[in-house]
């Protein structure tokens, strides 16, 4: 099933990974948000997962094997059980799935707006930070010197 090219996921792997990322971050009606299995987000995940590509191939293979090759077709509840066992048995692979999912999910325009971010990179506008309250340092000043003389 798997291939040596980390960019190249088979149709079956794509199906499995779509289900996995959808289990990690499902859609939310309460927040009006897509899940990570949304078409645009999934495409971003598969496109930008090259550094984790081999681990994703491996993860898909382990998950499919754990369900006897039927992962994509078993009921959602059974998928969740398989994934829970996968997380326990393969924490490194599960972590790779989390990382690629979060990277692409939280840069989606809809998601950024929903969590209160402006849809832009940090540069060139930057951000505002509340100023210092230097009066708070008065007790520190009053306690005086705490370093040791050593000369």
């Amino acid at each position: 099933m798997s291939t040596n090219d980390p960019y190249d996921f088979s149709a079956r792997e794509r199906d499995i990974l779509r289900i996995v990322v959808g289990h990690i971050i499902p859609a939310s009606a309460a927040y009006g948000l897509p899940g990570a299995d949304d078409g645009a987000i999934l495409a971003d995940i598969l496109r930008s997962a090259w550094r984790e590509g081999r681990k994703l191939h491996e993860a898909a293979a382990e998950i499919d094997a754990a369900s006897g090759g039927t992962f994509a077709t078993i009921p959602t509840g059974e998928q969740a059980t398989v994934l829970q066992r996968f997380r326990e048995q393969h924490p490194g692979l599960a972590r790779a799935c989390e990382v690629v999912t979060a990277r692409c999910y939280y840069r989606d325009d809809r998601v950024m707006r929903s969590i209160g971010m402006e849809v832009r990179p940090p540069f060139p506008l930057g951000f505002a930070v509340e100023p210092s309250e230097l009066d708070l340092l008065e007790p520190v000043r009053q306690r005086g010197k705490i370093y040791r003389d050593a000369n």
Binding site: H23, P26, A30, L83, V99, A102, Y106, M112
Partner: peptide, 25 residues
């Protein structure tokens, strides 16, 4: 940032997979 918050949160057990992800995040 949000990605690091999510990844660390999942690693620390503060953010679950599935239903509770959004609220926990």
């Amino acid at each position: 940032g949000p990605v690091t918050a999510a990844v660390n949160g999942m690693a620390d057990g503060l953010i679950p997979w599935g239903e509770g992800h959004h609220e926990a995040f």
